[in-house]
Nucleic acid binder design. Structure first.
Lengths: 233, 233
DNA sequence: ACCACAGTATGGTCAGACCATATCGAACCA
DNA sequence: TGGTTCGATATGGTCTGACCATACTGTGGT
């Protein structure tokens, strides 16, 4: 097993080099969302690589929610830096769930963790209750499970937003998006949404009152009602 | 604002179509990690698109930690399905942190949330304490801040692993990786690592004893010591 | 049984072309 | 002066075809 001091030649693919240089430029020049990257052809010439390699790097950046490409001409055309971690996270979770690389139970546990945290922090912050109330009344008017889940998602994402942490809010949104299908099933299986709606009201009241502990408790019991089969441990 | 019933023509880029079809195949055929995708040239011919478009789709899948491409010939060559959400998450966080699309504070708060959750669940599960003990003794032998952080990361990731939730463990690993630079700075700024080591021992003891509440408390106080400037709220 | 070597399938890269789109700008008309 | 039209241009999107490096496969010779 001795390699005699030799180590494998680092095989760096061209597009990875391009990625690294773009990332370096972002850090050194302090680029942020809204700034433009050079055009593909120009970047290819400057870096001495083919346009294909630049494009593959762009696809990676785009899939990670860092750039957005616009065709045409003008100030808004070309590769523009964005900050969309949530769409990237959603794709990531959906793909890994589809491949059975992750189990639904793990996603729901993560959601449980985040919602408890977000609810107690939202209660401490005491902001954003208007969006919560709107989502609650939206659920009252829902006629189908899909509609209900739609507003339910809005409610729970509003809690995460109210916590003030964009990363955690992005994770929350991605978890909800990738679980949408299962959430609809769960609501249909439950039949009656009265218990869920009561849980939402309780959470809302706790956040409005600024009671962090009560908010966390309310979230925990709410999720236990929504997914009874997954809380038998 | 009435569009007269017209709606913009859906502009779907070719590689997005390829992505969708690959994802569908993964779901319908029940493909999982280890399975192979068709070769790029074959896929291009079957789908009636150019190899470039297939390659761009591959880059996306690779950046999301879903496939891994190997050159050469044989059973292991080609595009193989993998399940590496953590590397994808690491890249995602690093890029968004570099772009100032996320702030360090948000990452550390997320880490705080996850560690508390993971520690209390690891205590309940009561497994994996061997890896924890190994990391603790590794830190005792560390001579530089980098070495210390290395083992510190191993310790905290081992907690997440012991929780049994791969998604949360992957997020934990990504948070640590993307924070590595700041963690080293924090340790150097602290000067003495005795308090941190004591915190680790306390966490380890709590997990060994199966005391979930004490584990969560120990983690919380440990992080407060490690990043004092960020816990003044 | 072993080994050397040609064959071949794979991803990686490049060059060049063409298309679709969106803006810019100048010429033209009112 | 003001507006409109239409060509020029810059941009990403796609395709084709070629070549390279890599790593297995199989064949043939020893």
């Amino acid at each position: 097993m001795d390699d005699g001091g030799w180590r494998p030649v680092k095989r760096t693919r061209t597009f990875e080099d391009v990625l690294a240089q773009i990332e370096r430029r972002i850090a050194e020049d302090g680029l942020t969302a809204g700034d433009r990257l050079p055009a593909e052809r120009q970047l290819a010439e400057q870096l001495g690589v083919s346009r294909s390699s630049v494009r593959e790097a762009m696809r990676v950046l785009e899939s990670l929610g860092v750039v957005s490409s616009q065709v045409g001409r003008g100030p808004d055309a070309g590769a523009v830096l964005t900050s969309r971690p949530d769409t990237a996270l959603t794709d990531l979770l959906r793909l890994h769930l589809g491949m059975a690389g992750l189990e639904l139970r793990e996603v729901i546990d993560a959601r449980h963790m985040i919602e408890q945290w977000a609810a107690s922090h939202a209660a401490s912050a005491g902001a954003g209750t208007a969006a919560l109330a709107a989502a609650v009344s939206g659920m009252d008017g829902a006629r189908t499970a899909e509609e209900f889940v739609e507003h339910d998602t809005a409610f729970h994402c509003a809690i995460a937003d109210a916590s003030g942490n964009r990363l955690i809010a992005a994770i929350m949104r991605s978890l909800r998006d990738s679980m949408r299908r299962y959430a609809v099933e769960a609501v249909e299986h439950l039949g009656d949404t009265a218990i869920l709606r009561a849980g939402h009201v309780r959470i809302l009241r706790a956040i409005e009152a600024g009671d962090a502990d009560e908010a966390a408790r309310a979230v925990s019991e709410h999720l236990a009602h929504a997914y009874p089969s997954l809380f038998d441990h």
